[in-house]
Design a protein around this nucleic acid. Structure first.
Length: 750
DNA sequence: CGCACGTGGTTTTTT
DNA sequence: ACCACGTGCG
C-alpha cells in the first residue's frame, strides 16, 4: 500500500512525503506536483498509522483546491474521510465558531456577510453616524476594516495618529458593534473571531492542539498575518512578537510548549501575487524560524512545460531580489520558441490571436486547451469581440458569481431574516422588494424607532402598523409554513410566497429577457438546495446559507463545452494549458502602471508574468500592441520591459523585430519598421545584441570563466548533456549558481 | 415608485 | 468606452 502510494514520485517529492513528524517547508515550483505531494503526504501519514484521519487539518485558500484535495484523497485512501478537517481558512473557522458559538459569543445561526453585504452594512452605518461619504468613501472604510482585521487588529488596537484615521477607527468600532448586535460576521471576522476564541479559551485551544497532530497548508505564500498567527496558535507554537493581547501572551507560551503539531507548508514565493490583499510572503521566512523548520525541500522538476518555456520563466524571475531561490528544470526537450507578436493596435492583436487559434484548431488542438490571458479585465472586451466575429466559443472567467446575483441575494435575504430576525441587512434588502408600498420614509421611521429603543429593525417593525406589519406577518407566515419542510421545499415555498417569482413574471418590455433569466436562476437556486441536501450531512437552512456565503462561485456550467478560456493572469494561477497567449504586454499595462508606485510592486508584477508563462505546456504566445483603446482614449505604449528581460534566443518574432523605439516616432501604423540599434534593458545593459553562440561544446568546460548579459561574470561548475540539450552550471559572482541551456543562454567565454 | 439622465471611476481577488 | 451608482423628475 505504501509502495504504491510512493511509486512515481521523484526523490524530492518522495522525501517530502516521507518526512518525519516535524514542521517542514516545501518550496514547490510551478508544475512540480505540489498538490500530489500534499495529498500523498496525508495518505502516507494515515496509511502508515502515524496519525488517524481525526488528527489531520488541511487548509487551502479556495474551495476548489479543497475539493480537489478531497477528491484525490478519496481515490488514494479506501477509508472514509469522516473526521478529517479539510477546507478553506474561512470554512474551517466557520466550523469551529459554529461548534463553539457560545464561547465565541455568537448566535448559533450567525450569518456571514460577503463583501457586498459588508459594504452595504458600512454605508448604512455611516449614514446613521452622519459620516460624510465624500471624505470617507465607504469602499475605503471597508478595506480599512478588513485589512485591520487581517492584521489581527481590533478597532481598539489600531494605531491612529491623525484625525482622519481616528474617525475611521470609530466607524470600525461601531461597525463591529452593529455586526454583533445583528448576529452577523464578515469574512475577516470569521478568522479573527476564531483566532480570539482559541487564544482566550485555553481548554479549547489545548483540545484542538492535541487533536491536530498534522497541519498541512497549501499555497502558503498567500497567507496573511492573521492566518499565520492562527496556524501558530493551532500548532502550539508560542506567540512571539506580533499580535496584541499582552495578557494572553505569556499565558499561551507557557502552556503550549508541551504539544506542538507538525506544520507541513507547501508554497512558492515566486508565485506570490496577492500582496495587494494582505498576503505576506515573509511568512515563509518566519515559518522556518518560528516552527524550527529543519526540512526545506525544493521541488524543482517541472512536469508541465517544455524547456524553452521554463527557461524563459527562470530567466525572468531571476531578476527578482529576495527570492528563496529555485530553478525549475524539465526532462522534456526545449520545444518551440516563444512566439512574439507586435500588433499595430489592440484590434490587430485580437485579429492575430484569432488567426492563430483557427490554425491551432485545424491542427486538432481543443479550444479548451487554449487560454487567453490579460492583466486586467477590461482587456477582454476587444478579444471577445474578435472571437464572436470569428465564431469561436469562449468562456470568460471571473464574472458575477451565482450567489452574488441580485435575485439570488434577495431570495436568500428572506431565508436569512427567517433564520435570524436581527439581521437588519437582510431586512432592508427585502422589506420593499418586491415593492409593497414601504417607502424610504417609512424605513427611516423604522430606523429612528430602532435607534431610540436600541432594538433591531425587526423589533421596530413588529411594533409598526399598516404595510410594515403586513411585511412582518409575511415573514412570520413564511417561517411557520416552512418549519417542518426539507430545504428545497422551503426554498420553493419562499420564492413563490414572498412575491419574488410573481415580480419577475410580471416584467414586460425591455426587462422581460432579463427577468426570464432571473427566474431561471431562482429555479436553479432550488436545484442548488436539492443538490446541497444530497451532498451534505447537515442539511439545515443555516448550513445552506453558510454554503451560499462561503462558496459563492463555481456554480457555472459549461465545463464540458469546448471553449477557449479567457481570464486574468491572477485567475490563471494553478491552471495549465497546451497553448497560452499572454496579451497586452505593454509597459504600463503589464507591468501595470500602478505597481510602479508601490514598494516591491514591480517584483510582484514580474511574479505575475512568471505565473503567466508557466501556465503553458507546449506553446506560448507573447503579444503587445502599439496603440490601444484605454479609458475611452487611444493610448500609445511601449513593449513591456518583461519582454526585454527574456533571452532573445528563446524568442521567435513573428513580426519584424523593432529594435529601436524612440517614443512616438515608430507609431506609424503600417509603416515598415526600421531595425537599428538594440534597446536598452532595465539595468541599462544591452540586451539583444546577437551573441555568437558556441557551435562546439569544447569551449564549455568546468572552470571556464564566462560572461552572461543578465547574470554577469561567472565560472562553469558543471556540464551536462550534449548537442541541443547541453546545459552548463555556472556560478555567477552576482546571481549565484544557475543551470543554463547552452543553446539559448547567451554565454561568452572570457 | 420607477425611470432618465448625469457623474465619477476604471489592477489584480478569495472568502 | 463602459459601467455602476445616485439624484431628480414625471
Amino acid at each position: 500500500m505504501n509502495s504504491s502510494l510512493l511509486s512515481g514520485l521523484n526523490p524530492e517529492q518522495r522525501a517530502a512525503v516521507e518526512l518525519p513528524a516535524q514542521s517542514a517547508l516545501i518550496l514547490a515550483g510551478a508544475g512540480s506536483g505540489k498538490t500530489r505531494v500534499l495529498t500523498t503526504r496525508i495518505a502516507y501519514l494515515i496509511s502508515t498509522g502515524a496519525v488517524s484521519p481525526h488528527g489531520i487539518l488541511a487548509v487551502t485558500f479556495t474551495n476548489k483546491a479543497a475539493k480537489e484535495m478531497v477528491t484525490r484523497l478519496s481515490a488514494m485512501l479506501p477509508i472514509n474521510m469522516r473526521g478529517m478537517w479539510i477546507g478553506t481558512f474561512h470554512g474551517l473557522c466557520n466550523r469551529m465558531l459554529r461548534a463553539h458559538h457560545r464561547e465565541a459569543n455568537l448566535p448559533q445561526t450567525f450569518q456571514i456577510l460577503d463583501s457586498g453585504d459588508q459594504l452595504s452594512a458600512i454605508k448604512r452605518l455611516m449614514k446613521a453616524m452622519n459620516v460624510d461619504d465624500e471624505k470617507f468613501p465607504p469602499r475605503e472604510v471597508q478595506s480599512f476594516i478588513s485589512s485591520s482585521k487581517e492584521q489581527g487588529l481590533r478597532a481598539s488596537e489600531v494605531e491612529a495618529y491623525d484625525p482622519y484615521t481616528r474617525r475611521k477607527v470609530e466607524i470600525f468600532a461601531e461597525y463591529d458593534t452593529q455586526c454583533q448586535r445583528e448576529g452577523v460576521v464578515d469574512f475577516s471576522e470569521l478568522l479573527l473571531r476564531c483566532y480570539e476564541l482559541l487564544s482566550r479559551n485555553a481548554a479549547l485551544r489545548e483540545h484542538y492542539q492535541e487533536r491536530f497532530k498534522h497541519i498541512l497548508v497549501d499555497e502558503f505564500q498567500d497567507t496573511n498575518k492573521l492566518q499565520y498567527q492562527w496556524l501558530k496558535l493551532l500548532a502550539g507554537i508560542p506567540l512571539s512578537n506580533s499580535l496584541p493581547q499582552a495578557g494572553e501572551r505569556t499565558n499561551v507560551s507557557l502552556r503550549d510548549h508541551s504539544s506542538t503539531s507538525a506544520l507541513f507548508a507547501v508554497g512558492d514565493d515566486d508565485q506570490s501575487i496577492y500582496a495587494f490583499r494582505g498576503a505576506n510572503v515573509g511568512n515563509m521566512q518566519a515559518l522556518t524560524r518560528d516552527f524550527h523548520v529543519e526540512n526545506v525541500i525544493k521541488l524543482e522538476q517541472n512536469y508541465r512545460s517544455h524547456g524553452n518555456i521554463l527557461e524563459a520563466a527562470n530567466v525572468l524571475i531571476s531578476n527578482n531580489r529576495n527570492r528563496l531561490g529555485k530553478n525549475l528544470w524539465t526532462s522534456e526537450n526545449g520545444g518551440e520558441q516563444l512566439r512574439v507578436y507586435e500588433a499595430a493596435t489592440d484590434v490587430d492583436e485580437a485579429a492575430f490571436i484569432v488567426d492563430e487559434i483557427k490554425q491551432l484548431k485545424s491542427e486538432g488542438i481543443n479550444l479548451r486547451e487554449i487560454a487567453l490571458l490579460y492583466r486586467s479585465n477590461a482587456q477582454s472586451r476587444v478579444l471577445e469581440h474578435a472571437l464572436v466575429s470569428a465564431g469561436l466559443s469562449y468562456r470568460v472567467y471571473g464574472g458575477l458569481r451565482f450567489f452574488e446575483r441580485q435575485e439570488i441575494k434577495h431570495a436568500l435575504a428572506y431565508l436569512r431574516l427567517m433564520e435570524n430576525t436581527d439581521d437588519d441587512n437582510a431586512l432592508l434588502r427585502i422589506i420593499n422588494f418586491p415593492t409593497r408600498g414601504i417607502g424610504a420614509r417609512s424605513i427611516e421611521q423604522l430606523q429612528e424607532a430602532a435607534k431610540m429603543n436600541s432594538t433591531t429593525l425587526w423589533d421596530a417593525a413588529a411594533r409598526a402598523g399598516g404595510k410594515v406589519s403586513a411585511f412582518v406577518a409575511l415573514i412570520e407566515s413564511l417561517r411557520s409554513a416552512t418549519r417542518e419542510l426539507p430545504l428545497p421545499e422551503i426554498m420553493d415555498h419562499v420564492l413563490h410566497h414572498s412575491g419574488l417569482v410573481a415580480h419577475y413574471q410580471n416584467e414586460t418590455g425591455v426587462k422581460k429577457r432579463e427577468a426570464e433569466e432571473r427566474l431561471e436562476n431562482l429555479n436553479e437556486l432550488v436545484n442548488a438546495a436539492t443538490l446541497f441536501v444530497h451532498e451534505n450531512e447537515d442539511d439545515s437552512l443555516t448550513s445552506f446559507l453558510t454554503h451560499a456565503s462561503l462558496e459563492a462561485g463555481e456554480h457555472q456550467a459549461g465545463d464540458q463545452d469546448d471553449a477557449l478560456h479567457l481570464m486574468t493572469v491572477h485567475s490563471a494561477k494553478g491552471l495549465e494549458f497546451h497553448t497560452v497567449f499572454i496579451t497586452g504586454l505593454e509597459e504600463g499595462l503589464f507591468p501595470h502602471q500602478n505597481s510602479q508606485r508601490e514598494d516591491g510592486g514591480l517584483d510582484e508584477e514580474r511574479r505575475l508574468m512568471y505565473v503567466a508563462i508557466t501556465r503553458a505546456r507546449r506553446r506560448l504566445y507573447l503579444s503587445f500592441a502599439q496603440s490601444r483603446m484605454l479609458h475611452g482614449q487611444v493610448s500609445y505604449g511601449m513593449a513591456s520591459s518583461f519582454l526585454r528581460e527574456l533571452p532573445e534566443g528563446l524568442l521567435h518574432w513573428i513580426t519584424p523585430r523593432v529594435t529601436q523605439r524612440n517614443s512616438f516616432a515608430s507609431f506609424g501604423y503600417s509603416a515598415p519598421f526600421t531595425p537599428s540599434s538594440p534597446p536598452v534593458s532595465v539595468e541599462g545593459v544591452q540586451n539583444s545584441a546577437p551573441v555568437q553562440r558556441a557551435s562546439s561544446g569544447s569551449v564549455w568546460r568546468i572552470g571556464q570563466r564566462v560572461f552572461h548579459q543578465k547574470f554577469g561574470e561567472g565560472v562553469i561548475t558543471g556540464v551536462e548533456g550534449s548537442g541541443a540539450d547541453a546545459r552548463v552550471q555556472v556560478n555567477f559572482k552576482r546571481a549565484g549558481s544557475k543551470w543554463l541551456a547552452l543553446e539559448y543562454a547567451k554565454l561568452t567565454a572570457v
